[in-house]
Nucleic acid binder design. Sequence first.
RNA 1: GCUGGCGUAGCUCAGCGGUAGAGCAUCUGAUUUGUAAUCAGAGGGUCGGGGGUUCGAAUCCCUUCGCCAGCUCCA
Length: 646
Amino acid sequence: MDTIKITLPDGQVEQVRKRTTPLEVLKKLNTRLAEQAIVARANGELIDLNQPLERDTPLNFLTPDDPEGMFVFRHSSAHLLAAAVLELFPEVKLGVGPPTDQGFFYEFYREQPFTPEDLEKIERKMAELRDRDLPFERRMMPREECLRFYAEQQQDFKCEFIREKGVGNEVSVYVTGKFVDFCRGPHIPSAGRIKAFKLLSVAGAYWKGVEGNPQMQRIYGTSFPSQAELDDFLHRLEEARRRDHRKLGPELDLFSLQPEAGPGLIFWHPKGGLVRTLMEDWLRAEYRRRGYQLVFTPHVMRQELWKTSGHLNWYQENMFPGMEVEKAPYQLKPMNCPGHILIYRDRRRSYRELPLRLAELGTVYRYERSGVVHGLLRVRGFTVDDAHIFCTPDQVEGEIRGCVQFALDALKTFGFERFEVELSVRDPARPEHYAGKVEDWERAEGALLSTLNHMGLLFKRMQGEAVFYGPKIDVKLVDAIGRPWQLSTIQFDFNLPERFDLKYTAADGAFHRPVMVHRALWGSVERFFGVLIEHYAGAFPVWLAPVQVVVLPVSEKAADYGGQVADQLRADGFRVELDARNEKLQAKIRDAQLQKIPYMLICGQKEKEAGTVSVRSRSRGDLGPQPLAEFQRELARRVETRAVET
RNA sequence: GCUGGCGUAGCUCAGCGGUAGAGCAUCUGAUUUGUAAUCAGAGGGUCGGGGGUUCGAAUCCCUUCGCCAGCUCCA
């Protein structure tokens, strides 16, 4: 009888019969893991637990705690969904059904849309199939037979998919009850493992994501190995909704959208405007400190300029339509670069002036298709914290380092700690895609790379993701709902200096082409503000809070004293409100809490006599009475240190 | 832009062919209040806009605008 050698993760070697399955190995070893494991890795490949082992191999087991294990788990959940849908709606045509970061989906083509009631029915059917503990069976099938099988059932999308993905003469399918899916696998042994799942939504999606292809109905869901984990996930969703800046912004009177004015256009209310002013004040001070010069450029400029810059060619679909003024076409600006370039080119530049760092809080307008605008995060008019650095090739590396450091400081100052850094470089196989000389690209990519390495930053290298005009570093930030938002971007530009024929006089007396670096740290003030609202759930740290302190007189008898306290704080530069309404103290506290005001100062008879204030923090509650001067010192300290805690 | 869902008072929502409702908010009055909602009264809506069906439309149909979830795209 043939035997093979299995090497377990702890180094132990087991002799087993050939064609023993990982599940059988597992059962001999450790019963607890036998229940948790959902897939095995043999010879570096993930395989089903009941896939026979043919040769000597290291073997380990994955549970849903491993990201790869969770992916398999969710992938199998998608199959369960499709199996249920096929039972209830045999006429549907199947698309694809992969796992996602948050769960899974499966795509179907069907004339009628799925209703919420349909989803409930599907969920019940899934539970039924799960309770029957349907096995996931892997079968190998000649490719042609598989194609015929699906063709008979008029599963056109599956056929298309097999023709594209099915390599070799044999393909694998997975059978779950009556449901047969062309699929590479691997899968969990049986549906009973999917203890907790929930269908979340149904949405349209183009087949293969290509606009113009038929619209599939995509059913989204999520699943977990236990109900507790599903509940936890649903709570997090709830929490994300609670922090949604689109809800909090208007509630806290920070900003609004006015349908009369048009979608994607932001109205900053006084409180939001104040926060923005504080943010910008910080930024402007940093610009001066770091050798940037602030400029302003016009919002409409001749179309000719946008032809020169190339935007009219490659960016037109994102630009508002042009307008005519005295027979000359004009264009609302979608970017700030050409304006800054005109300032650079206004006169001869010497190498002695470089690096020249021109910064602008530049408001731009971009045409975004109506379905994509989203609160503050995706809008049609926004302000970029933009700057363009013109420098000599030798200065590039230092400039890049300065930009990355500045970007991290700009995000950290506002309380963010989780970033994802991406380095986007060219695809060397497609040189025709990129403007500029190869040696420029090499130098630029080298500068970006060495900067990131120098700073000890973890980053993802994105080959082929560079823009045609230059490589770039992007910093992304993950928001409350786990969506990554691109904020900072630092880009080389080999294109515009060429197009505008930029030059400087070097030490040798000859003209040279400057290098141009384009960078934005927050990306847009609007987007950054939106992310900020969600990050703090509207409870801004005291240095940013539009109202830092509210004074609450206990009754009218203490109103005068409350007024004095408020005046005193206001005179010292704090942002204070006095709540002198004819309301009970409890009601005033409730309202102040809902407005997320960092500090409440309760002023009644006792405080008036003692010359104190009773301090209540929005996060720590009642802190008891203290002299006003003492509170003020503490408040000043927290503003100074930009403390997040109140 | 595409697919689907949703637009009723400032907000949250009920009403779903037969005279537009509730709670909160607002205003007025009473109360003079001690750490998350005091009581009473009043005002407030061309039911997103336009068109149609009907004796009669918030309710049914068409159209348009906006919002939401995705797809695609992006700071």
